[in-house]
């Protein structure tokens, strides 16, 4: 039973981590939290579902959906956030809340309000691993998330564009002085963040169904995970996500399944109380 709980915790944790990375990237680059992130995940999932229903093979549909969601991320940055950028930080936040509502209700109108089935990349039947019954879906989610996060890390540290993005995020003025087009980098950040959200949606939807209120389950926890691990820190997002997922699973398993969601937030409160900048951050953040 413990094994099952931990596996479940790692699976959910990987999803929170994937979403948290998207959140943390945007925070680092713009200094704001994108409250529409969960709904971008939802829209990405529905776009994928629409393409799948056109009888396009699953893998190809997902690739197209990720690109389409990245484009939505680009549009979001260009059309809405750029206009609001020079007014206060609060306005940016509210703008993303507004986008979140529009996306959610738009999805209800276009795709209907009912949950819909979403096909899985992985087998639906359990396999035997060292005497334990394991769902390929769980293993798949963990591996895909881990791979993507490691790939992102390599992108930010080894690839030129990635390194430019990293610099533009941490120190916009120096980056500009070095000839990096900071606004292009911000643009890319949003696109990548949205693409990641779409992948997270496609991973979770086979288990939870594609539904317009999908962001409710994961959205808030993504922020919690990002803040827990240290906002702005890539590995922090991964660590935060895993901790949240595992604590939640163990709490639900050994204490009470009704208060499952409460456990992750309790951990968040506790950690912030002890270390306000998050687990992996060293400097004092004064942006929030």
């Amino acid at each position: 039973m413990l094994f099952q709980f931990i596996l479940n915790g790692l699976t959910n944790g990987s999803l929170y981590a994937l979403m948290a990375v998207g959140v943390t990237m945007v925070y680092k680059s713009l200094g704001m939290l994108n409250f529409a992130h969960g709904d971008i995940m939802m829209i990405g999932t529905f776009i994928a579902l629409t393409i799948i229903k056109l009888k396009v093979p699953l893998f190809a549909s997902l690739i197209v959906a990720v690109l389409a969601t990245a484009i939505i991320g680009f549009l979001l940055e260009r059309l809405i956030l750029r206009r609001v950028e020079f007014s206060s930080f609060i306005n940016l936040l509210i703008a993303t809340v507004g986008v979140s509502y529009i996306l959610r209700n738009g999805a209800m109108v276009v795709f209907g309000t009912n949950p819909q089935r979403f096909p899985s990349l992985f087998s639906q039947f359990p396999v035997n691993v060292a005497g334990f019954k394991v769902s390929p879906q769980s293993i798949g989610i963990i591996l895909v998330s881990l791979t993507l996060i490691v790939a992102l890390h390599l992108f930010f540290t080894r690839v030129k564009v990635g390194k430019c993005m990293e610099l533009a995020s941490s120190d916009a003025q120096s980056a500009a002085m070095m000839g990096i087009n900071v606004s292009h980098m911000r643009f890319l950040t949003f696109g990548i963040s949205a693409g990641l959200a779409c992948i997270a949606g496609a991973l979770i939807a086979p288990l939870t169904y594609a539904r317009p209120d999908m962001s409710a389950a994961i959205g808030l926890k993504a922020f919690a995970a990002a803040i827990l691990g240290g906002i702005g820190n890539l590995w922090g997002a991964l660590l935060g996500g895993i901790i949240l997922g595992v604590v939640e699973a163990l709490g639900a398993g050994y204490i009470s399944s009704a208060y499952r969601d409460a456990f992750s937030f309790l951990v968040l409160f506790f950690v912030l109380f002890v270390k306000p900048t998050g687990l992996l951050n060293r400097k004092i953040e004064n942006k929030l």
């Binding site: 099952q4 709980f5 939870t208 169904y209 409710a216 389950a217 399944s257 499952r260």
Partner: peptide, 20 residues
């Protein structure tokens, strides 16, 4: 006996407990 909330999407934990 296990309780879940409407809108919950992940039931692995309660199913493990019921199975145990």
């Amino acid at each position: 006996s296990e309780v879940y909330n409407a809108g919950d999407t992940d039931f692995a934990v309660i199913l493990s407990k019921m199975d145990a």
